[in-house]
């Protein structure tokens, strides 16, 4: 399979939230009922039962007037994902075609991934003591279908397909937008973190949409991933061996000490 990507075009999104509900329906996720925030956006962020949300951003610009932007937010399916690097149980993997998927059977709920992700995506699902996130509908894609969100997008703001082709399309769209009233239009996800399996066509700079302008993986993660994790399997026996050694040695030392004491008394 080619490298597949979900593209999202901000300029076409009407924030109808069909994607949010289709995601719930396909993944059979319960409603996450939260107190009312007095806003169009009740969920401030994704959560263990909500893999995708639409963010609302209102700006008032003295020159451009009022703008009201919408942004669908979910897992970016990084090509080199931080969650995968830090997971001590190897619960994360990349599919051949680009999705970053999480295996709940392997997850131990340690939540390291939730801190490591530069986009704050994996979320703890308390009812199962596990982490959960968007799967890019890997189960649908493997069956030749589109991800549930892309399939249900009424205005075609979401498009799923070959990453290379979608990037070309995105370039065209951005050029068009720049020439038609959006001089700061840009693509997001092409180069960020070495390329994401999620491409955004933005009508303004990423910061205007609350996206990290230059997302980075925290510095210690590569160390963990590249040096410690390969030997993870050895850690438990090593630790066991270490404690056995320390047990024996402390015993020996103690006995010796006792003897000395004894000797001292005598």
């Amino acid at each position: 399979m080619a490298n597949l990507t979900n593209l999202y075009d901000v300029s076409k999104c009407t924030a109808c939230r069909a994607c949010q509900v289709a995601c719930k329906n396909w993944n059979q996720l319960p409603a996450a009922i939260e107190p009312f925030k007095g806003n169009y956006q009740t969920h401030e962020d994704t959560n263990g039962d909500t893999y995708t949300i639409v963010r609302f951003i209102e700006h008032e610009d003295p020159v451009g007037g009022v703008t009201w932007n919408f942004l669908k937010y979910q897992c970016m399916h990084c090509s080199d994902p931080a969650c995968m690097k830090v997971c001590p149980r190897g619960a994360y993997s990349k599919t051949e075609w680009g999705a970053t998927i999480h295996d709940p059977d392997k997850c131990i709920g340690c939540q390291y991934c939730t801190y490591a992700c530069p986009f704050g995506i994996p979320k703890y699902r308390e009812r199962e003591d596990k982490v959960a996130k968007c799967t890019l509908c890997a189960d649908r894609v493997e069956e030749g279908m589109q991800p549930a969100c892309a399939a249900t997008c009424p205005t075609g703001a979401l498009k799923f397909g070959d990453r290379y082709e979608l990037l070309q399309y995105a370039e065209e769209r951005v050029n068009f937008l720049r020439a038609n009233g959006y001089p700061n239009a840009t693509i997001y996800g092409k180069l960020e973190l070495g390329g994401l399996n999620k491409i955004y066509i933005l009508t303004d700079t990423p910061d205007k949409f609350g996206l990290p302008v230059d997302p980075k993986i925290p510095g210690q993660i590569p160390f963990w991933q590249d040096i410690v994790q390969p030997y993870f399997g050895w850690l438990i026996p090593l630790a066991l061996a270490g404690s056995a050694v320390s047990f024996v040695t402390t015993r020996l030392l103690a006995n010796k000490h006792k003897e000395n004491k004894k000797g001292g008394h005598e």
């Binding site: 993944n27 799967t135 890997a138 189960d139």
Partner: peptide
């Protein structure tokens, strides 16, 4: 990386 069966096991749906 994964077979179809395993995907369904992941809770994808």
């Amino acid at each position: 990386g994964l077979t179809r069966r395993e995907f369904f096991k992941l809770g994808g749906g």
